[in-house]
């Protein structure tokens, strides 16, 4: 629910939103009910998409890696890419498409430079397994993990504007997380635009 709140706080009411990797539409429903948005979704899984459509949502079954090119420029007020960029084949291409299609975009991802991950590699010498990254090295869908620093760097190179950001990590102790997000943030949310 917390993740929904972070995203919903950034989305203006009555806007047109596309959620990438929307699954069965839980977040779409939340934004529809809380922000009165015109909610659209894209997801690859037939079962989840039919579940979403059955609840009255506008969802297209498709592949984010290949299908974003069909959407016209600025056809959405917001695109939400929640926790999916690291599983994309070409995250850079997906980000560029997102920026082209939406006025503003919400990108969220697990920060691979989170200090507990750093410590885990340092001391165990094995691929880190955390609550947010629970997979074994051989079956992880996260094929393009990156860090807060990587993301900020990429945005500045591409001239994407970072409008707002939100980090979760050390519970309520916000100050260290915001001073050194690349070290203390476990999960990051960015509101960006062209």
């Amino acid at each position: 629910m917390k993740k929904h709140k972070v995203i919903s706080n950034w989305v203006k009411p009555y806007s047109k939103v596309l959620i990438l990797g929307c699954g069965n539409g839980e977040l779409l429903k939340f934004l529809q009910e809380n922000n009165n948005v015109e909610a659209h979704g894209l997801d690859i899984d037939s079962e989840k998409v039919s579940e979403a459509i059955s609840t009255g949502l506008s969802v297209i079954q498709g592949d984010i890696n290949t299908d974003l090119i069909d959407y016209p420029d600025k056809s959405f007020d917001y695109i939400v890419a929640h926790d999916i960029l690291q599983i994309m084949e070409k995250p850079d291409n997906v980000l560029k498409q997102i920026i082209r299609i939406a006025d503003k975009s919400i990108i969220s991802f697990p920060n691979f430079a989170y200090f507990l991950i750093r410590l885990s590699i340092l001391f165990s010498g094995r691929m880190p397994k955390t609550k947010l990254l629970p997979y074994e090295w051989y079956d992880s869908p996260n094929i393009h993990l990156f860090t807060v620093k990587d993301f900020i760097n990429f945005c500045s190179k591409q001239n994407f504007k970072i409008i707002d950001k939100f980090f979760t990590g050390l519970g309520r102790r916000k100050i260290p997380t915001y001073l050194l997000p690349n070290f203390f943030a476990e999960f990051a949310y960015f509101l960006i635009s062209a």
Partner: peptide, 21 residues
């Protein structure tokens, strides 16, 4: 069907699509 979906998307039409198993 995907050809139809693509054309509808290009025209910014509210489109829903599923390939049912």
């Amino acid at each position: 069907s995907l050809k139809i979906v693509k054309a509808l998307k290009i025209n910014n039409i509210d489109t829903t699509y599923v390939n049912l198993l």
